[in-house]
Amino acid sequence: MFLQQVVNGLIIGGVYALFALGFTLIFGIHKIMNLAHGGIFMTGAFIGLYSVQAGLPIWVAFILAMIGAGLVSVIIEVTAFRRLRQSGEVEFSALISSIGANLVLVSIAQILSRTQVLRFPFDTFPIIIFSFWGLRVSALQLAIALLALVLVGVMSWYLYKTAFGRQVRAVAQNERAALLSGIRPGAIYFQTFMLSGMLAGAAGVLVGLAFNSIHFMMGDPFLLRGFVVVILGGLGSVAGALVASLGFGVLQTLSIAYLSASLSDIIIFGLLFVVLLLRPNGLFGKDEAGVLRGRR
């Protein structure tokens, strides 16, 4: 059943990718380590859950969760980061500010859920199992894989193939040069935080469905894994985050299946250290000069 575990791992990896891409997007473009990303992800799961409980179909709930989480992300940008950015030294202060924003989100969710683990109703997603080539894949798993693929694809296309994406990358590389070319950085910040939040919200609903568990602390372990994925892939690298997410998902699933659940974190963090020893800037990271240039 090795192949089955690989497939399961790839699907979980797809969800990690959705989570990590939004995180790496904000870091790569705005140099902000957004520790509220886990909270935004959790908010997406809650919005999805409450929408389903209100009687909406799951696909509507999914879209609402993406939009809602995107808006929360934008609100955090405006309230927690914008003023700090104007003061110049944004990197450290934004880190602290994002911890605060995360606490606010987590506390609201804790009050709303009365500190309980919530679940989607039993029939939220039709339970259909496809069997082929000796594999068993559920319709939910297929949907997750498909959505992750589509969302990651759309985001890459947006960033690298459209005029808007070109403006986003211009602001990322040199905000002053972008300004001199008539680009409005404020509009770019709005777009990237919206996009990042939408990806996190999508990941939140998918994780809530896949593990059938939604609770106010669900963002924390993902934030940690998101860190690992982003560092493994190379900070700010979209392709790196994608490859690292899928690899992470497979490795985690395999180590749980063949070794033990408690060993999985040891293996993954051990691997992180090995990769960092060999390639300090991650698998797809820029060379030393590139990283420095990016931070300047």
Binding site: A163, R166, Q167, R169, A170, Q173, N174, R176, A177, A178, L180, S181, G182, I183, G290, R293
Partner: peptide, 27 residues
């Protein structure tokens, strides 16, 4: 429109993309 001190090109974008970014100012 200014060509700023120290050039300030967008290092990780191609020459063509840099020029297309410049066209944003047309608006």
């Amino acid at each position: 429109l200014q060509s700023p001190e120290g050039r300030q090109v967008l290092p990780d974008m191609s020459v063509l993309e840099n020029l297309m970014v410049g066209a944003n100012a047309l608006h």
